[in-house]
Design a protein around this nucleic acid. Structure first.
Lengths: 390, 390
DNA sequence: AAAAGTATCGGTAACGTTTGCGAATACGTT
DNA sequence: AACGTATTCGCAAACGTTACCGATACTTTT
């Protein structure tokens, strides 16, 4: 029989509806509504959630208060050496691991910097990560990395996840699709440090770290021209990216400076996977009046062009000059070596990391530089090094 | 004048020491001790911590309780369509972003998988990361990456940080220094899913994902032997790593199977940076009776050997056969191409990720496979491809 | 000896969410 | 009218830490 939890009466219990699929009762005597507590029925194979020892456990076991334990663990001043030692001993004895989540919640900071990159496949972003990771780790910060996968919706959801996780600052390199920047403006509004790198945009007022794409492109193309190439094609990136537009500008400027006519059908813009590069390369090399040099958006595209040319028996650099971008490891070893633009990837990582740390660590609003332009370097190798006096 | 906060008396206030650098007072009338509240003195340039709108804010502004808002946001059942809609509207209007920290604290899970790798410089680990990242992201999990930098103390502190951040599971590849495994046993004791990959050890009972190093090494060396090489040197990794020991075993087994005598001074174990590889390579190539083939621990070491041989005018593969390990991108392009062992890096990442998800998602204890051995593939290129009938 | 200062510790309100349990109301059925 | 049922919502206790504000007891100064 059921007895009332309040008056212990047995006879006057009546059903009184259901609450969340559980029978509800009422005691007619004391007018007390109640449901029966769940019988203790642990699911057999259920994982027993181990209890992690907390500050409270330590406090109880040596008879002090939580605040004392907290202060002792953090080396505060208001603690006698004896109690501090007792707390420390008990902590290691009970194998205490602080709960960073609770700490983060109360301090509303996470000691974590977020980083969103569009992809991982080129060595470029991993290298930036290495640089940033090093600096942040030295400073005691964690780094969480997300990958937008060159997709704008994913980028937006990534930024939301970063916000939800309350990162202290964000480093981001944009997608090629990104042309709406509301998700970045949220960071401005919230006062959360944000830095754009490599793939930047003009629509948001935060520090940016880029390379001198215009100059790099200009000198690469000029280098080709000085080596006697006349009809230079450009395999560029998607024009949604500022990077691509800058490189195109550099290409045009160099061509114009040296009075070379630009044939628009030799300028191809798009995102270059390995296959795409092969398709467009085939198109270029089979043109009736094919280019005698190609300036490609990245090294893997350039190498694909080189392989294609070799298949067709086109000699490099005599009949075709090739210049890439990024200086991947393989570019040094392919024969002939690929002339390419070396980017200071590590430095890009360290710079962005150092900047974000400045912004995060400063208690007050500080003036940050708006932009840093890192210098690239043209690495001249065999693929473009034609006898000067042609 | 100062008045007592309790009896509002003015005349009988006396100083009564300092409390935390603040003047303390006592009222002689009511014997009430007190200090003066801090005057509101916002530091001028101080960053105004923007208030993030919380569930409570939403609740207040539409006159319901927190729990109602929480349930509405999560699509619970006990909510009328109207209130749910009102909550949702207000949430987006007030630009609400959930606080994952608070969520994590109460749920004591973070939806985050941790990963600790010894280094980033070889493409190996970045590729594993790509694989794991893909799987985890698909499943709605985050991935935090830490780098132990081949240092045991750093590895230990990394695991502590992972524990403190209450990750739901850990993927780890050990340091070459690691020979104490207490920091891993903590995970077992706490019931936190743990998987070792690539750099594993025998001292902890968790799932492991590795490649068949023994077989790979065996077939690489056998391939050299079948190409007529007799005196094969081995540039191996540090023997603290199981990987290195397995490869050494494979080397010895292949040599013994084919009746080749092993000269112990041609076996060099150590961690090979680019410079180290050059030093040891110089040593080997300048031996009185120099080896006619070298099986190296990784591709960068192998390539360093190749470059060194070229400098010395030693022809590859005629006078020296070289085999590497990992199949870095550059290995395909160097001339002659480097024969090497291709490792399924992406698969290693996806496998570990899938396994850790199984372990994390399961409510009950489940039986996990103890080990998965991924298959490698010997990629034969010019550096070892000598005419068979020498 | 009174007053002032020092050293050490406790109580407790946050931080923002989730959730079990209870309760109120409306509705339907004898 | 009396009772059973369904729907919808609120209360309050966690989760683990930090830090402000006091509260003692003791030591030093006047």
């Amino acid at each position: 029989m059921i007895s009332c939890p309040k008056c212990s009466e047995v006879g006057s219990i009546m059903k009184a509806g259901y609450v969340r699929n559980k029978q509800r009762y009422v005691c007619k005597d004391c007018n007390y509504f109640f449901t029966l507590a769940n019988p203790e029925s642990p699911v057999p194979g259920k994982k027993a959630r181990r209890h992690q020892t907390t500050i409270i456990d330590i406090a109880r076991s040596i008879g002090v208060s939580n605040s004392t334990v907290s202060r002792a663990l953090h080396g505060h001043a208001d603690i006698s050496p004896e109690t501090r030692q007792a707390v420390l001993n008990m902590a290691s004895q009970m194998d205490y691991q602080p709960n960073q989540l609770a700490y983060n919640l109360v301090k509303s900071r996470t000691n974590t910097i977020g980083m969103i990159v569009p992809e991982f496949h080129n060595p470029f972003f991993p290298n930036v990560i290495i640089g940033a990771h090093h600096v942040l780790t030295e400073a005691g910060y964690n780094l969480t990395i997300m990958q937008s996968n060159e997709s704008y919706p994913v980028e937006v959801s990534n930024t939301k996840a970063m916000l939800a996780n309350r990162i202290d600052g964000l480093l981001i390199s944009l997608t090629q699709e990104t042309n709406n920047f509301d998700h970045l403006k949220v960071f401005e509004k919230r006062g959360i440090p944000l830095i754009l790198f490599n793939r930047v945009c003009d629509h948001v007022e935060v520090p940016k770290v880029v390379v001198n794409d215009f100059d790099a492109s200009f000198s690469a193309v000029e280098h080709l021209i000085l080596n006697g190439y006349e009809r230079i094609a450009h395999l560029g990136g998607p024009l949604t990216l500022l990077v691509s537009r800058e490189r195109l500008r550099g290409y045009r400027a160099a061509m114009e400076k040296h009075g070379k006519s630009i044939e628009e059908n030799m300028i191809i813009q798009g995102m270059f996977s390995q296959q795409k590069a092969r398709i467009y390369g085939k198109y270029l090399l089979e043109l009736e009046n094919r280019p005698d040099a190609i300036f490609a958006v990245n090294d893997s595209a350039a190498i694909e062009i080189m392989l294609l040319a070799m298949e067709k028996g086109i000699r490099i650099p005599e009949e075709l000059g090739v210049v890439g971008f990024s200086d991947n490891p393989e570019s040094a070893y392919i024969g002939p070596g690929l002339t390419t633009v070396r980017q200071p990837t590590l430095e890009m990582g360290t710079t962005t990391a150092e900047w974000i740390l400045q912004m995060v660590d400063s208690e007050t609003e500080i003036a940050m530089p708006t932009q840093k332009i890192l210098k690239t370097e043209l690495v001249v190798r065999g693929s473009s090094n034609r006898i000067r006096d042609i």
